[in-house]
Amino acid sequence: MTRLHVNGEEREVVVRTGDTLARTLRDTLGLIGTKIGCENGDCGACTVLVEGIPIKSCIVLTLDIADRLITTIEGLTDTPLQRAFVEEYGFQCGFCTAGQILNATELLGRSPKPTDDEIREQMESNLCRCTGYEGIERAVKRAAGIELPLQKGSHT
């Protein structure tokens, strides 16, 4: 048995040596908020936090992460960033949203008022197949308390 610390809970799971963290979270622990997109480390849909650092769980072995603190999207509840994603329409189909939010969570923890360059560098780790990048960027800025320019077509 392998001990995992997920979202504040200790879980004992049977893990094969070749299992990736993404598969363990979804298939063994039922935490299906973690999405598997490319399974190649490119899209970022599987992003989770390990000791607060975002990693792509599809290219990390579960055994590598044992005994470390894992946070999945199920571990976040009504955070200001999550609310900002709703308020700014920072999602369309929603497939990438968990990864986007977890990645941005670390950015705002490290840099509460991130610059445009910091946001770009951080968020270029995550692809949005709906190309909703503008809403995602606005959500991150809103959560950071950064003043947002009026959107085209907005009413004052």
Partner: peptide, 12 residues
């Protein structure tokens, strides 16, 4: 280092 892959992947 900053231009290899993306930041999340660079974390690994």
């Amino acid at each position: 280092a900053r231009r290899i892959a993306d930041r999340t992947t660079r974390n690994s």
